[in-house]
Design a protein around this nucleic acid. Structure first.
Length: 462
RNA sequence: UCCCGGGUAGCUCAGCCGGCAGAGCAGGUGGCUGUUAACCACCCUGUCGGGGGUUCGAAUCCCUCCCCGGGAGCCA
């Protein structure tokens, strides 16, 4: 008999049918003459209740069916006479035990475990309710990202993971090399990368944006969705050294269009999660209380509030709150300032736009005031920046001037300037940190808990 | 990288003004004809993070190193 996934069984099953299910035992409850097993196969948040009467040959196998054991069970699907589940399976024939799990040593027992403890057993934590929920939400979000852009005619482009451009200014880079680290070739005291694999120094990408721009200048609307690497020594609950980023780039568009896209995108993603992950969110709501179906519903319907940087500064100056860092036009917003805006003033996501040019990247389009640039940051409660974007500077003379001011070396940027030389057009885009999105939607407080194998300083075990 | 707070049983934690190492959960055994992180009874569990020092005596005080968490910076 073919195995059926529990998700399918619970939604499409018909009472009376013979079925075969495979999965891992979550809990076992034994009474005189009858036993119950809660079985999970990862396809859904819900467990399937197996009922094993004393008369079943399977009853003899119960001693091996401890929490964590992998089993197959065959029986009859029935409407459950008890509360807690609609269906259950009465196991009339044998249970096959693929692999048992010694309860004396198996770390996951039927009790609550802290997230900190689960981080130490990275290979087993996907078997918990919490990680099952988070990883299924992550999957639905990834699918929804493609659905959103594909439906709007965006082309998914694959920008390189290994790159030579080191001038984007977004944090420290990992070097990629095949040189013998024991005896590095030296020239003028420093390493001679001309002898390296690519003939020059290469890095892991920190952003696909610059490549995304030239693809948008040919294909119109594009997006990337891939891994990104930052070698910053960041030890926080919202930074990873390896994370996934989504970067749409849209041609013939300005900051307004960019903001609208970001808002539509975000709302769509919330909508899909509500539609497809209700039991996952309900579980996370019940156990962690940092997300809720009601909150996601609000997010899926509400437009982002937006405020200019200058107005945000005025708002902060008016605040009764005492800030540790100074509030002054020209200074960057600190975490405490962002949190004040999202948590206290607006109680939800906020887009801050038009920052002073000095505190933003060289490629952002200079506004007519000559002081600010067409930048936007989407800030959300608790996490802070989840999206960073801008309209790009498409005017050759303005761009070269800003590069000069920012000390960007021209030699490796010829191709980037070419885009402004030939058929230049207004364009804009943004970057969304995928794990921060998953974090926000699921309410997980630490970003290391929304990716199977977190990479961070001193952290690469699993 | 900086600032705080931690590290004691498999897990979560109490014990910390020095004096015999504790609880809850998990696990084991037995009981119970339908349980829902079942219930009841009994039982088991220790490199008190590592190293050094003070002391008659250190989980407890001091130094040092390691690890974890929270916050900050950098950013998505």
């Amino acid at each position: 008999m073919q195995r059926i996934r529990i998700k399918k069984l619970l939604s499409e099953g018909i009472a009376g049918q013979d079925i075969s299910v495979c999965g891992w035992v979550r809990t076992k409850r034994e009474s005189k003459g009858i036993a119950f097993i809660a079985l999970n196969d990862g396809s859904t948040q819900d467990t399937l209740q197996l009922v094993i009467p004393e008369t079943s040959p399977a009853f003899q196998k119960l001693s091996q069916c401890n929490t964590g054991a992998a089993i197959r069970a065959a029986g009859v699907l029935k409407e459950s006479p008890a509360k807690g589940q609609r269906f259950e399976v009465e196991v009339v024939s044998e249970i096959e035990v693929f692999g048992d799990a010694d309860p004396a040593t198996y770390p996951l027992q039927k009790k609550g475990h802290t997230l900190e403890f689960m981080r130490e057993i990275g290979h087993l934590r996907p078997r918990t309710n919490t990680f099952g929920a988070v990883l299924r939400v992550r999957n639905i979000l990834a699918e929804a990202v493609h659905e959103f852009f594909q439906d709007r005619g965006f082309i998914w482009v694959h920008t390189p993971i290994i790159t030579a451009s080191d001038c984007e200014g977004a944090g420290d880079l990992f070097t990629v090399t095949t040189l013998d680290l024991e005896k590095l070739p030296k020239g003028n005291g420093s390493v001679d990368f001309s002898q390296d694999f690519f003939g020059r120094r290469a890095f892991l990408t920190v952003s696909g944006q610059l490549e995304g721009e030239f693809l948008a200048m040919a294909l119109g609307d594009v997006y990337t969705f891939g891994p990104t690497f930052r070698a910053e020594n960041s030890n926080t609950s919202r930074h990873l050294s390896e994370f996934w980023m989504i970067e749409p780039e849209i041609a013939f568009a300005n900051l307004r269009d960019d903001m609208e896209l970001a808002g539509d995108f975000f709302r769509f993603l919330c909508e899909r999660v509500l539609e497809k992950c209700e039991s996952e969110i309900a579980f996370l709501e019940k156990f962690y209380k940092n997300t809720s179906i009601a909150e996601l519903k609000t997010l899926s319907e509400k437009s982002f509030v937006h405020i200019s940087y200058s107005d945000a500064i005025k708002e902060l100056e008016r605040a009764k709150e005492k800030f540790e860092f100074p509030v002054k036009w020209g200074l960057d917003l600190q975490s405490e300032h962002e949190r004040y805006l999202t948590d206290k003033v607006y109680n939800g996501p906020v887009i801050v736009t038009d920052y002073p040019q000095e505190i933003k990247a060289f490629y952002m389009r200079l506004n007519d005031d000559g002081k600010t640039v067409a930048a936007m940051d989407v800030l959300v409660p608790k996490i802070g920046e989840i999206i960073g974007g801008s309209q790009r500077e498409e005017r050759l003379d303005v761009l070269t001037e800003r590069m000069r001011e920012s000390g960007i070396p021209f030699e490796n940027m010829a191709w980037y300037l070419d885009l402004r030389r030939y058929g230049s057009a207004p364009h804009a885009g943004f970057g969304l940190g995928f794990e921060r999105l998953v974090q926000y939607i699921t309410g997980m407080q630490n970003i290391r808990d929304v990716i199977p194998c977190p990479r961070a300083p001193q952290t690469i075990k699993f």
